[in-house]
């Protein structure tokens, strides 16, 4: 079967349409998430690494510093600084990197 062809001008127009549509209406990865450390209640941390690596729900103290939960991008820094759902007790804050506070007793 012979391939149908699409003209260069049509392709260029389609690229322009696709790229313009993206920059105006839907920024790429609008639903992006980030790992946020130190905000999970015990047993509620995320981890989806597949078989053989069960770490989801393995944190043993509240707000464990080396356990993370996925949150919408940009929300992590709000934990502990903004009120409402973002409130954390005793001056704790969420962090994009691992923390050494609230670690379980070895």
């Amino acid at each position: 079967m012979k391939n149908k062809a699409m003209s260069a001008a049509l392709v260029a127009g389609a690229v322009a349409t696709a790229v313009a549509g993206l920059s105006v209406t839907t920024p790429a990865h609008a639903q992006a998430k980030e790992k946020c450390y130190g905000i999970s209640l015990k047993g509620k941390n995320d981890c989806k690494a597949g078989p053989g690596t069960t770490c989801a729900g393995s944190s043993t103290v509240d707000y464990q510093g080396n356990a993370w939960t996925l949150v919408p991008k940009g929300d992590c820094v709000k934990f502990g600084t903004a009120g409402g759902d973002f409130a954390l007790p005793d001056g704790r804050q969420g962090s994009l990197t691992e923390l050494d506070r609230d670690l379980p007793q070895a």
């Binding site: 079967m1 392709v11 349409t17 696709a18 790229v19």
Partner: peptide, 18 residues
Amino acid sequence: AGRALTAAPEFQLPVCLQ
């Protein structure tokens, strides 16, 4: 894009690319 049109005449390049 040509191969896609061959496979499916209703192929929409802007939609798929986006």
